[in-house]
Amino acid sequence: MASENGSAETIVRVHNVAQRYGRKPVLRDVSFQVNAGEVAALLGANGAGKTTLLRILAGLDNPERGEVWLGNVPLAAAGHEIRRYVGLVSHRPLVYDNLNGLENLRFFARMYDLVEPEPRIEAVLTAMDLWRRRYDPVRTYSRGMIQRLAIGRSILHDPPVLLLDEPDTGLDQESVAVLTDLIAQLRQGGRAVLVTTHNWERAERWADRVYHLVDGTIEDGDEVLKQR
């Protein structure tokens, strides 16, 4: 996706976002952007504020200060319809363990108003290698299978913005390789992807641009990568 002058369109713009929990500041004037067809990695230690930032971008939390724009729409002023354009893989799978994989995706397909959802659900479950286990309750899935279902849920409605919070958690090497392929294909398809990870090598492999979150502030991770 490119604008008329040939430059990539900015899909996610974060400007001076600050957030605190109680008295403790978690994010301090964080600013960055992610363009269409671009993968940005957000690196940082535990407690650096990565998840907080992703929750704000997904519209689950409001920042104390600052602005987030999705395309031309400020998130603070947008209604719930803006959520069609965002997919999130969170630390928690956000799926129902008493339902099976098929029922979970059918439910979310209804919530996203998907037209003719069944072929899409089958395609997602097949891509996530869960089609054979579609009738099994999610509580019987392994951690890696649940993570794959969570990834499937996040791309079910094919959002232009995908937020992946440590998506490789619990995945085996083969699934990580396919996740890498998925991220590459999302980039190729013009989606804006923001992925958090602790793993510098994976960040370098997955992302076009790397941001480093330290004590709630953003540093240019590309510079850090060069120094490594």
Partner: peptide
Amino acid sequence: MSSDSLRGLLGRPVTMRTD
């Protein structure tokens, strides 16, 4: 997860009702 089925997945348009 399989790479071949991923390609097919992302190539298919998804329609949502917005009425």
